[in-house]
Simulated scan of single mutants.
Amino acid sequence: MGTEPTNQLGQYLRARRALVTPEQSGLPAGSRRRVPGLRREEVALLAGVSADYYLRLERGRDRNPSAQVLQALARVLHLDDVETQYLHDLARPASRARTAARHRRAERVPARLHDLLAAVGVPAFVESRAFDVLASNPLALALSPRLAPGGNRLRSLFLDPAERDFHRDWEAATAEFVGAFRQSIAIPATGLADGDGGDPHGVAHDSRVAELVGELSLASGRFRALWDRHDVRRLRGGTTLVDHPVVGELKLHRDKFPVEGLLLVLYYPDAGGDSAEKLQLLASWAATTTEDAPPGT
């Protein structure tokens, strides 16, 4: 008979219930629990659905749960707004197929973005939804050579030892990147609407993403553990501390702006602060390095 095909909604439900403790749900922990987190029947009880119905959801036998059921599951699994929306999207393959068509357009950097990268006085680059770097300005390269076009930010983060030294809190950075990555590529294969059982990673529709997830899952235990959690985080900016080999510690704000299916990413310091001065020094160093480089390099 073989094993039953996996499905994205079921995988997400299993991953999230494994993270909720009985104590968080007001249930006795007991001493003979064989699974981390909540049992299926406990989730069903707390959500007000039958255990058989919940089992069908996890096994992909019911692909049309109502909004009320999804909201109840989100409450039981302690999902935030972003995770709740992700849960609803997983249960609506038809609408996600339309979104997939929009995202499958060629990832080409418009000429005006190249002009913008050249004009701004802060590290800036353009990335795809798979976190491939498509274009960057000289100051971004001075901040990190791993921001060169053709690189991938996830691959660098997990596989390049220099990234561990670069990020002041590498553990937090990896968790944030993987959650944002899953949100960015959260568009399952259109075949889900045809009842084919789905794709266990949610990436079969995009060979580039599938290749990247497969590579990182094999090469990095840290990535594999984070990927299996199914965390979802909003694509947004923030503040990060990095250790630069030339100018030392930099505190930089990060903002991301969507442009035609791509993301424009800017790193900038507080005006007048120590990091602003260091960034100016970095810009001068980068300009000097470029001027001193042999022709054709």
Score class of each variant (00 low, 15 high):
3 T>H: 14
3 T>F: 10
5 P>K: 05
5 P>V: 06
6 T>W: 01
6 T>A: 07
9 L>E: 05
10 G>E: 00
11 Q>D: 03
12 Y>V: 10
14 R>K: 12
14 R>V: 03
16 R>C: 01
17 R>V: 14
17 R>D: 03
18 A>S: 14
20 V>D: 07
22 P>Y: 09
23 E>F: 08
25 S>C: 14
26 G>S: 09
27 L>S: 01
28 P>D: 04
28 P>G: 00
34 R>Y: 04
37 G>C: 11
42 E>P: 02
46 L>E: 00
47 A>M: 00
51 A>P: 07
52 D>V: 04
55 L>A: 15
56 R>F: 10
57 L>I: 06
58 E>L: 05
59 R>G: 04
59 R>C: 08
59 R>L: 10
60 G>A: 00
64 N>E: 04
69 V>P: 01
72 A>E: 10
76 V>N: 03
77 L>S: 10
77 L>H: 04
81 D>Q: 04
83 E>L: 09
88 H>R: 14
90 L>M: 14
92 R>Q: 13
93 P>G: 09
95 S>N: 13
98 R>A: 06
105 R>D: 01
105 R>T: 14
106 A>P: 07
106 A>Q: 11
107 E>I: 12
108 R>M: 12
109 V>S: 04
109 V>T: 01
111 A>G: 05
115 D>F: 01
118 A>I: 06
121 G>E: 11
124 A>F: 02
124 A>L: 10
124 A>Q: 01
128 S>L: 03
128 S>E: 09
132 D>Y: 15
139 L>H: 02
141 L>W: 05
144 S>K: 03
145 P>N: 04
148 A>E: 13
148 A>M: 10
149 P>E: 12
152 N>F: 13
154 L>E: 05
155 R>Q: 13
155 R>D: 13
156 S>R: 06
160 D>I: 10
162 A>R: 05
163 E>C: 11
164 R>I: 11
167 H>S: 06
171 E>K: 13
173 A>P: 00
173 A>T: 04
173 A>Q: 05
177 F>V: 12
177 F>K: 09
177 F>R: 06
182 R>C: 12
183 Q>I: 12
187 I>M: 09
188 P>K: 13
189 A>T: 02
190 T>M: 02
195 G>D: 12
196 D>Q: 06
197 G>V: 10
202 G>Q: 15
206 D>I: 10
207 S>V: 12
207 S>T: 12
208 R>N: 12
209 V>C: 09
210 A>I: 13
212 L>D: 02
218 L>M: 15
218 L>R: 15
218 L>K: 14
222 R>L: 14
223 F>Q: 03
223 F>Y: 05
224 R>D: 09
227 W>L: 09
227 W>D: 12
228 D>A: 15
229 R>H: 00
229 R>P: 01
230 H>V: 04
232 V>E: 02
232 V>L: 06
234 R>N: 14
235 L>H: 04
238 G>K: 08
244 H>L: 07
246 V>I: 08
255 D>H: 08
256 K>G: 13
258 P>M: 08
258 P>T: 06
258 P>H: 08
259 V>Y: 08
264 L>E: 02
264 L>R: 08
268 Y>P: 00
268 Y>N: 00
269 P>T: 01
273 G>T: 02
277 E>G: 11
281 L>G: 08
282 L>K: 00
285 W>C: 10
287 A>D: 07
288 T>H: 07
290 T>D: 01
290 T>Q: 12
294 P>I: 07
297 T>L: 14
